[in-house]
Amino acid sequence: MTCEELLKALNEYVDGAELSELCDEFSQHLADCDPCQVVIDNIRQTISLYRHGQPYEMPKAFQDRLQDSLKSRWRETFGQPPTTSQP
């Protein structure tokens, strides 16, 4: 397996493809190719950074507006006033 071939198959490897022929070839390549190993590690960190980054804050005023419009749509759809929290 060359670095070029590895690049094409990289998704499957990063996504944790099960033990397969591909995976064996991949591991063999990585064992003596530091640059490819680092690229894969960089990509895993990249994904992790976006997946676990801070969420976007929704403006409070919008949240209140959304809640009101959901309530009235709920009434129209379910034909009953929304039940509220138990006391």
Binding site: E4, L7, P35, V38, N42, L49
Partner: peptide, 19 residues
Amino acid sequence: NLPHPQFISAWTRTAEEIA
């Protein structure tokens, strides 16, 4: 024509620290 990685280096911090 996939772009070949240009700058290849380990990150100085983990993704968790950066986030």
